[in-house]
């Protein structure tokens, strides 16, 4: 009976709404980094449920602005909001998917994975203190590599970016002088180098400029067949950028150590951990103005947690581990409620 009544209400609602198919879409905006995987999930989700996703990949900063202006049901950001910020704005935050940031180089005679760098050296290069490829610090890490004496051309992001946030967070963690002089943010005051727009811009500039080094999401390095470097991680072990090493960094993370799961996965402990792993977050109101829309969004996220791992893996993203998913779902039931105080969405 109840179902019948609801179906009738729904039918009436749909008849009244001018654009029923649009009304049923989930609306979100934010980070560009996870956009490919969100789009892929949305496509599969629409095929199985008929509910579409309208996601504007306008950047993390834009996502935060839009959710605070309440023009979208969820915002997406690569740079997590602080606990204070979340409390003040009444937002809930949870991680959706992870990926890795890799240094990419264009040095004559160097093949992918041949070069290895560590955090302090990387920080010195991006501060302009190491100017040539045959600098002693690089040579010491790569005794067998044939390094040219050519100048290092640094390529960084010119637009504000969660990738830059995670990259600079890592460099701040491993280099005191980086932390003092430059710091951590989505955009920075870069002491050297050229700026390029977006991951694809950095990838293109590195591919074209001899002697260059940049940092991109792993998927972009792979697609553009760029020369990535290996890294020395916190445990002093040499690691390659692979799904396994990104996942290892995530597995070792203590997700409950920061409010809103706002853990930056840079410089995580563990012998296998890739030091520049990054998560991306979703922001939603704890008391959404439109509980129905919030419910649709949470249903989609639950579906993505449960069924999205394969699609993520194909695009070189890492799905969230099962224990995190369980904790996030429990948080939804506890925190995201309608005006009557009932959970908007409770899985299972």
């Amino acid at each position: 009976m109840k179902i019948m009544a609801r179906a009738a209400a729904l039918a009436i609602g749909m008849a009244v709404a001018a654009t029923p198919s649009l009304a049923a879409d989930i609306s979100g905006a934010g980070a560009t980094f996870p956009y490919p995987v969100y789009a892929k999930w949305a496509d599969a989700y629409k095929k199985s449920t008929g509910v579409g996703l309208n996601y504007q990949s306008i950047g993390s900063g834009g996502g935060i602005k839009q959710i605070k202006a309440k023009t979208v049901t969820f915002g997406a950001t690569d740079a997590p909001l602080s606990g204070k910020d979340l409390d003040e704005s009444g937002l809930a935050q949870f991680p959706m998917v992870m990926g890795g940031i890799v240094p990419v180089v264009n040095v004559e005679g160097i093949k992918p994975g041949e070069l290895v760098l560590d955090g302090p050296t990387l920080a010195e290069i991006f501060q302009g203190n190491i100017k040539t490829w045959d600098h002693a610090a690089i040579k010491k890490l790569n005794p067998s590599a044939k390094l040219p004496s050519s100048a290092i051309a640094v390529v960084h992001r010119s637009d504000g970016s969660g990738t830059t946030y995670n990259f600079s967070y890592y460099l701040s963690a491993v280099s005191a002088s980086w932390k003092d002089k430059i710091g951590t943010n989505t955009s920075l005051e870069w002491p050297v180098g050229i700026g390029a727009k977006g991951n694809e811009g950095v990838a293109n500039n590195v591919a074209q400029t001899k002697g260059s080094i940049g940092y991109v999401e792993y998927a972009y390095a792979k697609q553009n067949k760029l020369t990535h470097t290996d890294m020395i991680n916190k445990d002093g072990k040499r690691v390659k950028p692979t799904s396994a090493s990104f996942a290892a960094a995530a597995a070792n993370a203590d997700w409950n150590s920061a409010p809103g799961y706002g853990v930056i996965l840079a410089n995580q402990p563990g012998a296998e951990s890739w030091p520049m792993t990054a998560a991306t977050w979703i922001l939603m109101y704890k008391a959404p103005a439109d509980p129905e829309a919030a419910k649709l969004a949470l249903q989609f996220f639950a579906w993505a947690y449960d069924n999205g791992a394969k699609a993520a893996d194909e695009l070189d993203y890492i799905a969230m581990p099962a224990n995190v998913v369980k904790s996030v779902k429990a948080m939804w039931a506890k925190d995201i409620k309608d005006s009557a105080g009932k959970p908007v969405f409770a899985s299972n």
Binding site: I64, S158, G195
Partner: peptide, 29 residues
């Protein structure tokens, strides 16, 4: 080259007003 620096060299990267706005406005928190 989108670099916020004034260099003596005209081969060095620089930036312009409109390029800066286009690059940074979306993420200006």
């Amino acid at each position: 080259g989108n670099a916020h620096r004034i260099s003596a060299s005209i081969l060095a990267p620089g930036t312009t007003i409109s390029a800066t706005i286009a690059n940074e406005f979306t993420e200006a928190v």
